[in-house]
């Protein structure tokens, strides 16, 4: 009876072995390549980025038509906006004298500057649309129902934060579009009875859109609101897991 004999390892196997089974690599990635169910679960459970997920998930939830990935894509937009935003921050100074020139400079003199600015702009619009659609998905699939009530509330807060993030960014190019949009927008806030004018003054740091408004919007846009959003996102994602993952029929 023929017994299967061990074969000589090929060159590819040897290289693979040297690359991925060495001391350094294993210190970074504890699990092997996720080609067995055990490793696939381990990689999700032990990787900091993947561990937001459970290791297993109901089969209906991976169907694209169940969520359309809207929540995940909103988060992805947030990440993309952070990356492009940081790149834009290298060149942009939020002063009335420089802001507009810096934007022109980004568009004309910076390598891929126009592309970065475009990406930042369109991603911001996409994020607003996606977060709204995500809310509709959650509503029409009844996913706000118990025990996910509070996560719905966190979601509403994140919706408002997304609008505010976009709104504060709108002023930064310091062109006519930005100036008048923020004038109109803050006038809306200023129309509140009793507290309106105070709110408007507090938002703008003055009675009209000027240097103080620019620095306020900039600070809120690049650090204040993203931090707040990140905190609420952490709670939002954590609660998805704590509340038993995505909603499904009981």
């Amino acid at each position: 009876m023929a017994v299967e004999q061990p074969t000589q390892p090929t060159l590819g196997d040897l290289i693979y072995d040297k690359l991925f089974h060495n001391y350094v690599w294993r210190s970074i990635f504890r699990t092997g390549y996720p080609n067995t169910p055990r490793n696939q679960m381990l990689v999700v459970a032990t990787n900091v980025f993947l561990h937001l997920h459970p290791t297993r998930i109901h089969r209906t939830h991976v169907k694209i038509t169940h969520t359309y990935c809207l929540g995940g894509l909103t988060f992805f937009m947030f990440l993309g906006l952070t990356v492009t935003g940081i790149l834009l921050m290298f060149y942009y100074v939020p002063s009335v004298d420089r802001a507009y020139l810096d934007i022109q400079n980004i568009q004309t003199n910076v390598q891929f500057g126009q592309l970065m600015r475009n990406m930042h702009r369109w991603m911001a619009h996409a994020m607003v649309i996606l977060v709204f659609l995500h809310m509709l998905r959650v509503f029409y699939t009844g996913a706000y129902k118990p025990p996910r009530e509070f996560n719905w509330v966190v979601g509403v807060v994140l919706l408002v934060l997304t609008f505010l993030l976009s709104f504060t960014g709108y002023l930064l190019p310091w062109d006519q579009l930005a100036f008048w949009a923020i004038t109109v927008g803050t006038n809306i806030a200023g129309s509140a009875p009793v507290l309106g004018p105070k709110t408007r003054f507090w938002l703008l740091g003055g009675f009209e859109v000027g240097p103080d408004a620019l620095i306020r919007f900039y600070t809120l846009h690049v650090i204040g609101l993203p931090l707040l959003a990140a905190i609420f996102m952490a709670v939002h994602f954590w609660r998805i897991r704590r509340d038993g993952g995505l909603a499904r029929p009981l």
């Binding site: 996720p34 169910p37 696939q40 679960m41 990689v43 999700v44 993947l50 997920h53 459970p54 290791t55 297993r56 998930i57 109901h58 089969r59 939830h61 991976v62």
Partner: peptide, 10 residues
């Protein structure tokens, strides 16, 4: 009824 997150969801 469950599938693995890696690879299906990822």
């Amino acid at each position: 009824e469950e599938v693995l997150v890696w690879p299906d969801l990822v």
